[in-house]
Structures are given as structure tokens and as C-alpha cells.
């Protein structure tokens, strides 16, 4: 069942409230207003800019996870955090802090992403290993390569890359702009292209998609490859953004990449995605942390409230 356009005509507001991304986006706006109110109106745009900067990394990894989850029940990519750290470390290491080798490092990260995605695919398709275990195992290997490599290597970004990662266009971080562009392309691909429609059909009913003569294999493969590439690029930029790669820089992203997908209104059993929802959910999750920091709440309470909000939003948006 396609999630949108299927309902009888309703008042516009009710129709809006039925959009899968509605709750996360509304929540993000509400929390932002709360942050602004708590700071008595100061730094409203700066807060939003910071949220967009950090949120970018949730969005980019979420995009990859979303494609994989869209491919149907059981599909998930647990190698995302390991991929990020690997690409961050090896990318920074290859550049060695020199501006001249920027393109080289970027290409390496891109290639690592493709290779990681391909390794996941190989395990899933050729060895018929369930995606959850295949990506877990591939992630373990990536993690240990990173650990072995990290001994005595430079993890600092070249100055030019650091500047680019922190650059702003008005209140808007440049990387957020890039992520917006990428999201727009992905949203278009998912709704208009043969690849997107095939991937969604595969997620809704694999057998029906096969019988309809759709080429589901390449779409499934592309989802995993793109997830690898997105994770690698996110890791590359995150390492630059935070001034250097570290072994635990991506540990949040295992659960967060899944959380932003499901909070954003994509269906966890596949076949329905929402790119707009990814942004809503990413900003919501980051702004909650900001708000609780403004209120000087302890880390423990912050996690508890994050969990409650995830459960609340999912409860409100109902069954998927």
C-alpha cells in the first residue's frame, strides 16, 4: 500500500498530519522554539545553524540506511559506523594534512565506501548471510583495520578541508547545503527514477516485484553500495568537521542512523521512504540534545528523554 495519495480527500490540515514526516518535523520546530525561548531569543539562528551542521551527518548516514531498509524486511546496514571511522581515518591519513592531496583523500573515502558496500553485498548475495549478520561481520573487519591503521598515523585534516567543513553561507553551514542538494537528488530518484520505484516495489512485495518483471537485483545492490558510499563520505567530512578522526567518533551512528529513518516516517519493513522526514528527525534529535544542554540536564536524563520522545513520536504516528 503506497503511504500517500491513497486516502480519501480530507481537510488539508488532516492530510498534512497524515504525512509520515509530519510528527518529526513538527517536533523539530517545537523543540527549536523551546531552545530559542529558553535562551530568551538569543542565538536562534546560530542554534539552527549548529543543528543543521551536526544534523547533516545524521541525514547523510540516514539516507544510506533508508535505502537499505527500503529494500524490505531484514535489510539493514550495521556497518555504517565502522565505515565512517575507516573512511575518516584512512582519508585523513592519506592526505597527511596537506592541501594538495585533498582530492586523493576524497577519492579514497569514496572508493572505500564502494568497497565496503560491495563487501556487504557479496556476503548477503553470494554467501546468503542475513544482512544483519553480514553487515555486522563486515563492520567488525573494518573496525579492526581502522584500529590497526590508527597506530601512529595522522588523523588531522588539511587546513583547507577544515575550513571547508566549517564554512558558512549566512547562517547555513556549507556541508548542510551539500547534504540538502544530495537529499533533493535522492528524493527525486526515489519518487521518479526506475531505480527508486523498483527499490520501493521490492520492499513492498519482493515476489510481486519479481513477477512484474522488475530488475530488483541491481536496485538492491545499489542500495547497499550507496549506503557504503554515504557512510564513507559522512565519515570523511565528520573527521574534518571535528578537527580529526578518532576511533569512537561514529559510535552514535549505529542506532542514530536507524532512529532517524524510522522517526522520519520511512517504513521499517521497507517499501516507503521519506527524505523530508530524515531532516525532521535529524534536527529533532540534535535539537533535543541542545535543549537539554541549555537546561543543564544530566547525560542520563537526556538519554531517557530521547528514548521517550522516540517512543512517543512513533506511537503518535501509529502503525507502519
Amino acid at each position: 500500500m503506497p503511504p500517500e495519495r491513497a486516502e480519501a480527500p480530507h481537510a488539508p490540515l488532516i492530510r498534512l498530519a497524515r504525512r509520515p514526516w509530519f510528527y518529526a518535523a513538527t517536533g523539530a520546530v517545537l523543540v527549536w522554539l523551546l531552545v530559542v525561548a529558553s535562551a530568551e531569543g538569543r542565538g536562534a539562528w546560530a542554534t539552527l545553524g549548529t543543528a543543521l551542521g551536526f544534523g547533516t551527518f545524521y541525514v547523510i548516514t540516514g539516507l544510506g540506511q533508508m535505502l537499505v531498509i527500503a529494500a524490505g524486511p531484514g535489510n539493514i546496514d550495521l556497518s555504517i559506523p565502522s565505515m565512517m571511522t575507516l573512511a575518516g581515518y584512512l582519508g585523513m591519513g592519506l592526505m597527511g594534512g596537506e592541501n594538495g592531496r585533498l582530492a586523493l583523500g576524497f577519492l579514497l573515502a569514496f572508493g572505500l565506501g564502494l568497497a565496503g558496500g560491495a563487501a556487504n553485498l557479496l556476503l548477503i548475495r553470494l554467501f546468503a548471510i542475513p544482512p544483519m549478520i553480514a553487515t555486522l561481520a563486515a563492520g567488525l573487519v573494518m573496525q579492526s583495520v581502522t584500529i590497526a591503521y590508527s597506530r601512529g598515523s595522522t588523523a588531522k585534516p588539511p587546513p583547507l578541508l577544515l575550513d571547508a567543513a566549517l564554512a558558512h553561507l549566512g547562517p547555513l553551514p556549507l556541508i548542510a547545503l551539500g547534504a540538502l542538494l544530495l537529499s533533493a537528488v535522492m528524493a527525486l530518484l526515489m519518487s521518479r527514477s526506475v531505480f527508486g520505484r523498483t527499490l520501493l516495489a521490492l520492499g513492498q512485495n519482493a515476489r510481486a516485484a519479481y513477477l512484474a518483471g522488475l530488475r530488483t537485483g541491481p536496485a538492491h545492490a545499489a542500495a547497499y553500495l550507496l549506503s557504503g558510499v554515504f557512510a564513507a563520505l559522512a565519515g570523511f567530512w565528520l573527521a574534518a568537521y571535528s578537527g580529526g578522526a578518532s576511533l569512537n567518533m561514529a559510535e552514535d551512528f549505529l542506532l542514530m542512523s536507524i532512529a532517524v529513518v524510522v522517526l522520519g516516517g520511512s517504513r521499517v519493513s521497507g517499501g516507503a521512504v521519506s527524505v523530508g522526514g530524515l531532516w525532521g528527525a535529524s534536527l529533532l534529535l540534535y535539537l533535543i540534545v541542545t535543549l537539554l544542554n541549555v537546561w543543564t540536564v544530566s547525560a542520563g536524563l537526556r538519554y531517557v528523554l530521547t528514548g521517550l520522545i522516540i517512543l512517543l513520536v512513533l506511537g503518535l504516528s501509529g502503525e507502519r
Binding site: 539493514i76 542506532l255 536507524i258 532512529a259 524510522v262 521499517v268 519493513s269 544530566s298 547525560a299 542520563g300 536524563l301 537526556r302 538519554y303 531517557v304 528523554l305 530521547t306 528514548g307 521517550l308 522516540i310 517512543l311 512513533l314 502503525e319 507502519r320
Partner: peptide, 21 residues
């Protein structure tokens, strides 16, 4: 009839937070 993966994911933050508290 909620997906277990989502509910347990949300709950994981609550367990971790309670532990840190």
C-alpha cells in the same frame, strides 16, 4: 503490532539513560 526493532531501539536509550542516572 509495532515493529520490535523500533520499540527496542527507543527503549535502548531509556535503559542507557537510566543506567547513567
Amino acid at each position: 503490532r509495532l515493529p520490535s526493532i523500533v520499540i527496542t531501539l527507543g527503549a535502548s536509550f531509556i535503559w542507557l539513560g537510566a543506567g547513567l542516572l
